[in-house]
């Protein structure tokens, strides 16, 4: 079963960290990624540029509107993610707890919808009613 681990933390913390400390955390991230690659739990993972680089796009009445942001109004912002393969939620929680930012910010763990199963169900349902 796949879970997305969304990493939320205060991005300002990163700016204020002394280089030696941020390097230490980056090394922890490398070690963590290596570990979950080795034990087969890694599916994908990326770090995001800060929210200052973000753009919000909406389409209303067929018209595209583009705005700056979202801005860091909340205390924690989405800073990156891992997609993992885990046996169940307890397993996923154990992996998420090892993400270095779990100590500073928080990790939102979301199960991924398996569309192949959903699609099969829908097809069958459609077949049954046809």
């Amino acid at each position: 079963m796949k879970y997305l681990c969304l990493i939320y933390e205060n991005e300002k913390n990163w700016e204020s960290l002394p280089p030696a400390e941020s390097e230490a955390i980056m090394n922890e991230y490398f070690a963590f990624t290596e570990e979950i690659r080795k034990n087969g739990k890694y599916v994908a993972g990326e770090a995001l540029q800060p929210t200052a680089t973000a753009t919000t796009v909406r389409v209303r009445n067929g018209k595209v509107s583009t705005t700056d942001g979202p801005f860091a109004e909340t205390k924690e912002q989405l800073g990156g993610f891992y997609m993992i393969e885990a046996k169940d939620l307890n397993d996923a929680i154990q992996v998420a707890a090892k993400i270095p930012s779990a100590r500073m910010g928080s990790i939102e763990v979301r199960p991924i919808i398996d569309f192949s199963q959903e699609a099969a169900k829908r097809e069958q349902a459609a077949g049954a009613t046809a």
Binding site: M1, K87, D88, L89, N90, D91, V109, P111
Partner: peptide, 14 residues
Amino acid sequence: KAAKIPYQVPARAD
């Protein structure tokens, strides 16, 4: 069901 919360007694450590 959706998040697959397992039907188990937690491990000693937890």
